[in-house]
Simulated scan of single mutants.
Amino acid sequence: MKCALVTGGSRGIGSAICQKLAIDTDYHILINYQANKEAAAATLEAVIANGNTGELLQFDVADGAAVKTVLTQWQEANPEAVVEVIVNNAGITRDGLFMWMEPEDWSAVINTSLNGFYNVTNFFIQKMLRNKYGRIVNLASVSGVKGTAGQTNYSAAKGAIVGVTKALAQEVAKRNITVNAVAPGFIKSDMTSQLDEKELVKLVPLNRFGEAEEVADLVSFLVSKKASYITGEVININGGIYS
């Protein structure tokens, strides 16, 4: 059984990626979620409706011990299963001006995006190297590429994802493992629902927010055989916003 794991797969971009991979690939979809079981179950229903198989894995990517425990139990229960694709999508925002930023708001964002990447990817990387095949796609952000005022913590976390993508890509390329990042701009989702779309859309040359499905299409391409010669890249998907 060949599998694709999507972290933060219950809602928004993560859910769209799970559903897209269910249509475009024959991977068994592992849908990670932290708290919202209803949303995760709805994503699983959509995966099945799209003619594929999947299951839910509950853990907080920022909790290294929990990640190890859940994934070890899953691997022991499914000894034949091989995770070929990891989509590190889980992320949170705790926006605010840096001068008023509380330590926990800094740490929570870094822990989820950056340490979450480490906890999940590190668990599987040796297995991928042994199997001599893998696709790792990390969700960065326009904030991590150009920086966004009011999001120093999120920009730091996503900027680090850009760096780790480029470094890890070089380490594992000889074993036919690609590592790429996708950097969305303003995408319609729960995370952007509080933003003033009418004002912010003026910053976007394409004059609209993106759809989660458009990001999912890009991720689906990057995990496919068609993208075999692309690695260490950060692909912006932002309607033309740039620094």
Rank of each mutant, 00 (worst) to 15 (best):
G159T: 04
N36L: 02
A39C: 10
T53G: 09
Q19C: 14
K202I: 14
D196Q: 06
N32G: 06
S224E: 04
G134Q: 03
Y229E: 04
N111S: 15
G163H: 12
P103R: 08
M191Q: 13
A212Y: 00
V223K: 13
I241D: 03
K226Q: 12
N89W: 00
I48Y: 04
V82Y: 15
L200P: 11
M1V: 12
Q19A: 13
N115G: 02
W74Y: 07
W74K: 06
E213N: 07
Q194C: 00
L71M: 11
C3P: 04
H28S: 11
A108M: 07
E233F: 02
G210C: 13
T121N: 07
K2G: 01
E233Q: 15
V83D: 09
D26A: 13
K132I: 05
L222T: 06
G64W: 01
N111T: 05
L114H: 02
A156W: 07
K174I: 05
I92R: 05
G185Y: 08
E211Y: 08
K132A: 03
L195V: 07
E45C: 00
L21Q: 10
V61F: 12
S220L: 14
N176I: 07
V204R: 13
S10K: 02
L56A: 06
G144M: 08
F98Y: 06
I241K: 08
A35C: 05
N32P: 09
I177A: 06
D196K: 11
Y229M: 13
T178D: 10
K226G: 00
Q19D: 09
A169D: 09
A181E: 01
N122V: 01
T43P: 07
E199G: 07
A66N: 14
E213F: 07
I230Q: 03
V215A: 07
T7V: 00
T53Y: 02
E199A: 14
L139Y: 00
N52I: 09
Q19W: 00
R11K: 14
A90W: 01
D196E: 11
G14R: 03
E80M: 12
A65R: 02
D95E: 14
V219T: 01
M191E: 11
G91H: 04
V137E: 05
L44Q: 09
Q34D: 08
R208H: 12
V85G: 06
N36Y: 02
M101H: 03
E199M: 14
F59N: 08
Y27C: 12
V83A: 05
A77H: 05
S220W: 11
G210F: 07
E233N: 03
F123N: 04
N238L: 01
A227W: 10
P205C: 05
G51W: 08
Q151L: 03
Y242A: 08
Q75A: 15
N207A: 13
F117T: 04
V6E: 08
G159A: 11
A46D: 01
V215H: 00
D63E: 15
A4C: 06
L71D: 00
G240L: 11
T69C: 01
S107G: 02
T165R: 02
I136Q: 13
E45N: 14
I17C: 12
L218P: 10
I237A: 13
A160E: 03
S193A: 15
T43A: 05
W106E: 09
N138C: 12
F186T: 04
G240Y: 11
N115M: 15
I237P: 12
M99A: 12
G96D: 04
G91S: 12
N138Y: 08
N88H: 05
V47W: 05
A169Y: 01
Y229K: 11
T112R: 02
R175N: 09
P205D: 06
T53W: 01
M191S: 08
